[in-house]
Amino acid sequence: EAHFQVQLEQLRSMGFLNREANLQALIATGGDVDAAVEKLRQS
């Protein structure tokens, strides 16, 4: 989780407030914030 701290903060600042969902999306996308946003929008 600490590995994705910067990305988690970016997602939070973009309005994605579900930390667990954000973390799962980042893990699934290897930390790619843009891909994580797409994944979160689809769910």
Rank of each mutant, 00 (worst) to 15 (best):
E38N: 15
A21G: 07
Q42N: 15
Q5W: 04
F16L: 15
R19G: 09
M14P: 00
Q24C: 06
L11A: 01
L26A: 01
G30C: 09
A36R: 00
Q42V: 11
Q5V: 07
L23W: 08
V6G: 11
N18V: 13
L23I: 12
F4T: 07
G31R: 02
F4L: 05
T29G: 07
A2Q: 14
R12K: 14
K39S: 11
E38Y: 05
D32L: 09
A36G: 03
F16P: 00
V37D: 04
E9R: 02
G15C: 04
L23A: 11
K39R: 13
A25I: 07
N18Q: 14
E1Y: 04
E20G: 07
M14K: 13
E1A: 03
A28Q: 10
A25K: 04
F16Y: 03
A35N: 08
T29L: 06
L11V: 09
Q7W: 02
Q24F: 09
D32V: 10
E1R: 03
Q24A: 12
M14I: 07
L23P: 00
T29S: 12
G15D: 14
L8E: 13
N18L: 10
A25V: 09
S43R: 15
N22Q: 03
L40H: 11
L8H: 09
D34P: 13
G30F: 04
Q7A: 05
G31M: 02
Q24M: 04
Q24E: 09
H3D: 14
L40F: 04
G15V: 01
V33W: 04
E20D: 13
G30N: 13
S13D: 14
L8A: 06
S13T: 11
I27C: 08
G15I: 02
I27R: 09
Q7R: 04
Q42M: 07
Q10G: 07
A2I: 10
S13F: 12
D32C: 06
A28V: 07
R12D: 06
Q24L: 06
M14E: 08
L26S: 01
A36P: 00
I27D: 14
E20I: 06
L11P: 00
L26G: 00
I27Y: 04
T29D: 04
E1T: 07
L8I: 15
D34R: 06
N18E: 14
D34L: 05
A2H: 10
I27L: 11
F4S: 01
V6R: 08
L17H: 03
L17K: 15
Q24K: 14
S13L: 10
Q10N: 12
E38A: 12
